[in-house]
Design a protein around this nucleic acid. Sequence first.
DNA 1: GTGTGGTCCTTGAGCGCGAT
DNA 2: ATCGCGCTCAAGGACCACAC
Length: 426
Amino acid sequence: MRNTETQESANYSDSEESEDSFLEEETVPVKEQAMRKIEFALADINEQLKKNLKQLVLRTSNNKSDFFLRYSTRMKKKLDRDLHCLHQVYDLLENDKKSTKRELFYEHKSIYEVQRNLDSSIKSICELLDESRSNLNILSCGRGILRGAITFLVKDVGVIDARVQEVLITDALLHSELISEANFILVVEKDTTFQKLIDENFQQMFPRGILVTSKGYPDIATRNVIKMLSDKKKFPIYGLFDADPHGIEIYLTYKYGAIKESAEGRGAFVPSIQWIGLFPTDYNRFIIDRTQCLKLKRTDIVKVENLVPRSIQLGESIVTRELDWMVQHSFKMELEAINMCGPEYMSRYLIAPRVTPSNLQAEKHLSFTSGFEQEFQFSETPAYMENTNVDGCNDTDDEDDESLDDTDIDSDTLRMMEELIDNDSD
DNA sequence: GTGTGGTCCTTGAGCGCGAT
DNA sequence: ATCGCGCTCAAGGACCACAC
């Protein structure tokens, strides 16, 4: 045992000092750092396997303060999958190749069994190496799409003009050059809304707008690309989601990332995104058919129960208040509810008035908005106007008299939800 | 008691297949 | 030809069981 330990230390003593000092140097490329870490981890775990230890540790250095993965006897399969994944990542880095999750999965389908096992391994490896997924040359199958006033110049691909075609959002866009005269980005929750807006001439109506969707919960690539556009071009970002608990959670995922932030998706969020609808309280502002209102299910109420404290913690008073209203009235709405009001209704009466006035003035085709404002009297102040500044920073100090403070909302809402759960036989 | 893996649920979408 | 169903994929979160 002692001999082995001596041998082990002999194996790494030569490189240990240089290893640690090497890793701390910022000038070393990410790729080289990751490869060194993997080499260490594989050699180290190999030694542990020889010793037939009860518990194995996957680590990237001898420094005990560094992140490591621990594997008990019941986690043999997990270890096997993680090691295969580590080998695949090393292969990608060594050969300067990029691969999708799906491709990696099919390379060792018998090992991973189902894709979520590979997802779990990738997540673990990102934590272990302290690198984002894209830095490890792992791409996700693009899910998000984009259309509007922007052109990407992508290395090795060429010109991708989003004015004339839908663009699949992948990590490759992150490293492209941009040509754009856009002055805002509109993120919509789902593809049906995206297509509907395109069909209703979104591009003619908003020639300087960019429309984005990630088809449900946003993937990391889409969040990263929106963040990149926001950072580079300072576009204001607006978000349009269903007036239901999932829609609100999707908004929070865009704005703050996932609750369990991982190395895989580190930094993939867009703090400047502004929620412009569909608010539950929009039921009072638009002429929405009662049949478009769907009763909250038990699972919805449970989700609201979790979202309320989260929104309070995040200081999202509008979200808290809208959730409160939703629970009090016990129904939710999808974006399609607005479409039922009339042709181009969503673009004209929901989106146009809710992007900033400076943007509206730049739109030649929006003369109808002033007419709309005259003909349509809001029964109450829309939430997006109450405490959102033009620069996208929320100002939670200016609550009107009728608004509840967070403490009141919390207790009222929770009581309401408890009653609903008790009465809900669904 | 705490942390974590595995499982199952939700959202969004697409595709193939069988019944009508 | 159309519709409904069940499967897939990619994200998210919640919950339970188990190891430490």
